[in-house]
Design a protein around this nucleic acid. Structure first.
Lengths: 208, 208
DNA sequence: GTCTATAACTCGATAGAC
DNA sequence: GTCTATCGAGTTATAGAC
């Protein structure tokens, strides 16, 4: 009785199933490595339907890529443009960013690979939005240093350090497991620990 | 007069030219993105010759991949198994590793991407060698902490932190340039600075 | 060993029935 | 909307002349 209207846009329409499958395959294998057949199989539909809904492979790819990028930008914006005190900002960024990535493990690698291979496509069609501006963050770092509350540090390097510490272990997870000889279970625990570890490492490095 | 013998293996035989071209193309574009035609063009020879020397694309790929991995392992081994004092070890590792990567920018991304896409192939055929064991390094970290010479820290996280700080900025360079709004020239300087910055960041974080 | 020509195959895309 | 069948472009791989 209550099932009359057809969901006008979202939910699990065929289009959504295709998008989800494409998301999984593209983030794992990139534009070149992904095959339309594999996406169709994963979505449980026929290859021809992909084209019915998304015309071309590249169009489907762009749709996925935009959605992926859209998730990461607000977190960076928060750190750059927010008005919390510096330490608070750093704590929140690390916590939030590691949390985001651990639920979307392949995303950073996806973004990075595609920027490297097709910088033009990336910047023109996939990422046309305004980047967060880091000036506020820069100023905060300088002020804290001037007041003697942190060790003086080049703020650009600080940002890069924080992002590196959060992102790289996910990007390089298999390599890391190899180097440290960790089982799958140990790796999970290890990644959980990193929120705390990275926070204390960064704050320790900033002590005056 | 002194040119009688034919170089039995190396130097710039056709095989070497193919290998060099393949190295460049594969590290930039990965297994899927690389095309045999492009490799042939870059080597200045015919496409058919690739198959004469290396039978299959995958074989050529494996040859390149093994060579690439082979460069990174000794540096890690040095840090893990060498017998210098801890601080000395860390300083040398950072200096050496950033140096290595800045002359082979595409390599980390290449390794990481391929592990993610084809973990089986990677671990079975490309990387069959013995990994450096980190036990010596672990012990050193614990001893220094026990002696109060550094802040106590989980040695696994320390390793991952150091590697992240060295490698990620290269892997994520285009993203970083975007976020920080740096020109090509600024980026070059920035990367040069990192040897010093990373070293002081890590040592600062380790102060008791 | 190196080339030209072409076979064999993979994969994105389309036509057309239901 | 969804499927089956097939085309056609782009690539890997091979045959065979030189």
């Amino acid at each position: 009785m209550d099932k009359r209207e057809e969901t006008p846009d979202l939910s699990d329409s065929t289009k959504k199933k295709i998008f989800d499958a494409a998301h999984e395959v593209f983030t794992k294998k990139g534009m070149d490595g992904a095959k339309m057949q594999e996406i169709a199989d994963l979505a449980g539909i026929n290859k021809a339907l992909l084209h019915y809904y998304y015309k071309k492979k590249e169009k489907l790819y762009e749709t996925v890529a935009k959605a992926v990028i859209g998730k990461a930008v607000p977190v960076i914006r928060q750190m750059f443009e927010g008005d919390q005190p510096l330490e608070e900002k750093i704590r929140r960024f690390i916590d939030f960013y590691i949390g985001l990535i651990s639920h979307n493990t392949f995303i950073p690698l996806f973004i990075i690979s595609e920027i490297n291979k097709h910088p033009d496509r990336f910047f023109e069609t996939i990422f046309p939005q305004e980047m967060p501006r880091p000036e506020v963050f820069f100023r905060q770092v300088k002020e804290e240093a001037a007041a003697g509350r942190i060790r003086p540090i080049n703020p650009k390097h600080l940002i890069v350090n924080i992002i590196s510490l959060c992102v790289f272990p996910f990007v390089g997870k298999p390599m890391m497991r190899l180097v440290l000889g960790m089982s799958s279970g140990e790796t999970l625990i290890f990644m959980e620990e990193r929120k705390v570890e990275v926070t204390s490492f960064v704050l320790a490095a900033l002590r005056p």
